[in-house]
Amino acid sequence: MSTFKINIIAGPLWSNDEAQKIGGRIAAAHLGKFTGEWKTIVEGQMSVIEVEYNTQPTGSTEYTMPVLAGPIWSNEDAKEICPSICASYGGTWNGQWKTVVEGKMSVCECTFRF
């Protein structure tokens, strides 16, 4: 199985010790594995950690949750937007969505395997 790596924002990290301590938790929250690499992108304000993923989600446990998707205007709009939104988090769209703030924010229901 092949893998890929991305950077995920982690808030400000002040030292390598801190990054190594919490990087694994952040990566796990995003269903990935912390590589140990990190960097500051805005001094004193924001850092990123490098997270590795398998190209195909594995595991027998599933969990579905809503993910913020910006405004969605219709079912047709959701069919175009939600699959990519869920994939960007490592999940798959289950066909459900709803508006949570009229004209501003909707959510897509994403299923994650781990």
Rank of each mutant, 00 (worst) to 15 (best):
M46S: 15
G32W: 06
G103W: 11
I85A: 12
G70T: 08
G95L: 01
G90E: 08
P71C: 01
P57C: 10
E62V: 05
E62C: 03
C82T: 04
S88Q: 00
E62G: 03
I49W: 13
Q56V: 14
K79W: 06
A69D: 11
G32D: 01
I41W: 05
T35N: 04
T40Y: 02
A28D: 10
F34V: 04
K33V: 10
A19R: 09
Y53I: 12
A28I: 03
T61E: 00
N54M: 14
V101S: 11
I49C: 09
W93Q: 07
N75Y: 06
Q20C: 02
A28T: 00
A28V: 01
T61I: 01
L31M: 03
G70A: 12
W97A: 04
W97H: 04
T99Y: 00
T61H: 00
A87F: 03
N54G: 14
W73Q: 09
A19C: 06
S60H: 05
V51M: 10
A19D: 10
K79M: 13
I72Y: 12
L13Q: 06
G32R: 02
G91D: 02
S60C: 02
S60N: 15
V51W: 03
V100E: 01
M46I: 08
A19I: 05
T40E: 13
A69V: 09
Q56I: 14
L68G: 03
E43H: 04
N54E: 10
A78C: 10
A27S: 08
L68S: 01
C86Q: 13
V48W: 00
T64C: 05
Q56F: 09
Y53H: 14
K39T: 10
D77C: 12
W73V: 13
T99W: 00
V51H: 09
